[in-house]
Structure formats: structure tokens, C-alpha cells
Design a protein around this nucleic acid. Sequence first.
DNA 1: TATATATATTTTATAAATGTATTATCTGAA
DNA 2: TTCAGATAATACATTTATAAAATATATATA
Lengths: 163, 163
Amino acid sequence: MSDFASTEQRLAVTCRRYPDFPRRPGVLVRLIKHIHMLLNDEANALLKPYGVNHPEYNLLMMLYGSASGTMSPSELADATGEKSANITRLTNELTDQGLISRNASADDRRKVELSLTPKGLALIESFLPDICGLLVRQGRHLAVAEQVQLEKLLKKFLSGLAD
Amino acid sequence: MSDFASTEQRLAVTCRRYPDFPRRPGVLVRLIKHIHMLLNDEANALLKPYGVNHPEYNLLMMLYGSASGTMSPSELADATGEKSANITRLTNELTDQGLISRNASADDRRKVELSLTPKGLALIESFLPDICGLLVRQGRHLAVAEQVQLEKLLKKFLSGLAD
DNA sequence: TATATATATTTTATAAATGTATTATCTGAA
DNA sequence: TTCAGATAATACATTTATAAAATATATATA
């Protein structure tokens, strides 16, 4: 999926064959899918030398961004969008790598508290410079005002989903 | 991943811990991921009664939107973003269901030409009303001018990726 | 208190996606 | 023409993700 022009061409054909097809939302949906894929690929490529993949990175960053420093598997599932069974597998791997630790919750014995180990924190701080560079580079074609505007519109778009 | 507020909260913590973190592109990336997931879920839920999943739907719609009516597996891989091995599997399933047909290409005997069968076309036209309704509903919080603006900004964002 | 129901996590089985190797065909340069 | 890549599609093995069931604990209510 190299350029977006062929996608627009196909949408034009679709609208010709089926005039009710809502072209504008259709373009938006395909743009989001296309961008999402590229973002994913670039992040994976960057992270590979650090020994983690994108889902594992996301999981680590959720813990890094949590106010308390610990999250339960179900909170992580909610935050990352992964299914809970997948969280079990991913946290197993991260635990095996010594990047996070598992502890039983004191107040609810069903719960498990996951937190970064010093090694996990060190890994995050080792890849963050690269990640920051990537994010800046990815957004470089947009002026700050445009980034603000895009954020606003995406949030509005989001508000029309799943309610 | 129900609401986006907790994501923003985590990004705020991240920026506090690591001040160089580029918050704005970071928000954009997470918004795209979040929206992509919701779009995917809604499409899957809608398509389930029709007996196809989202990747299969995408494949069918690429054929529907192709000017010639036929595409090769590698063109489909490029158009959908799926790996070619995955296209083989998906087209096997669609062929088994009688929705698409496979034919050897006349001018390049390495190639396979895939095209919709009447049954596949009928299926598409049976779910298109629902799909159109979904797309309209998904975009309903945005005025037309906002959709245009969002499309423009997403394309600009896209232009900063993978080059 | 006892019992039903709900929640949190993990296990197991299955499905989906990916990477790599293989086969067949094509293209271009020697 | 022939031979060395390049390209197209598929097969196979492995990894990754999902769904369904199992286990343990908590909560509500009768």
C-alpha cells in the first residue's frame, strides 16, 4: 500500500457503481487505516533493535504513563485495546525478560499488580530518544496549528464512534 | 479502551517524566490507533451476519472498486496492506465460498486474476446499504466542511510517513 | 450466613497473520 | 540463445491473537 491515489481511484469507481456510497467518510476510514499501518510499521522497525515489538512497547509505555506506577492486566487490556488473554501472554514475556514484575494485590486477591522493573525503566529511557525523534519526524509536515486542528477533528470524529 | 481521557492522562504523566516527549504527535498517533480499532470493531460487528470478516470485506471491496474488475493477488496485497501469504489464505476462503473466482492470466502465466462472481457481487450489494449507513453514522459528528478539512490534514500527515 | 452473581486472571484450543522457502515464469544482459 | 536475477504465487512452519472455559475471589441479597 504505497500511495493513496489508487485508493481514491477505487473509491471513485465504487461511487460510480453505487451512487449512495458516502465518499467522504469512506475516504476518512481508509486514510485512518492506511496511516495506522504505516505508523505501526515504522514503530516496529525502530523498536526491533531494542528487543521489543509494538504491543510490548505499548504495554511498557502504559505503565510508564500510569500515575501510580502499577496497573492490573485488565487495566492494561483496556488501555491498549488488547484482549486479556493476550495481555497474559505479553506480560509473561516481559516478565521473563525481567522488564516488568508481577505482584499480588493486597486489597483484592483476584488482581495482579504489574509494574516496571529498573531494567524495564532503563529500556524505556534507552529507546525514548529514538521514539521522540520518530514522533517529531512523523508530524513534521504539519504546522503546530495544524496538529492542534487535526487533534480536534479526530476527537470529534471519535465522539461519533461507539456510542 | 473506552474513553480517550485516560490516554491523555497517561500522556501527561509521560511528558512530566520525560519532558522531551512530543505530546502533540503522540496524541495524534494514539488517537489514530484508538479510532482505527473502533472502526474495525464496528465494521466487524456489522459484517458478521453476512458471513465475512473485515479483511474479507476489504478484499471484496477492492475488487468492486477496480476499474477492470480483476486484480492479481499482489495488487490486492498492495491495496489492502495484507501480506501476500495472507492474501492466498483469504482468497482461498472467498473462493471456497463462491464469492470470487481465480483464473490464470493470459499474458503472464505467473499471475492469477481474481474477480467477483455474481454471488460475490450480490453479497456486496446486500451489505452495502448497511455499510453506507454505518459510514454516514460514523461521520455524523463532523460537518461536511470539517470532513473536508480532516481529509486534507490526514493526507498531509500521511505525506510525512514512509518517505 | 448461605447462595447467586459478578469480576479478574489464566488456561486451553483455535484461528489468523507472518516469515521463509519453493516453484514457476518472466526479463534483460552477456 | 542462455543464464542470472527479478517477480508472482503458494506451501509450510512459527508466531501472534482470539474465543471459550476454568479457577479463584469478591460482592450483593435473601
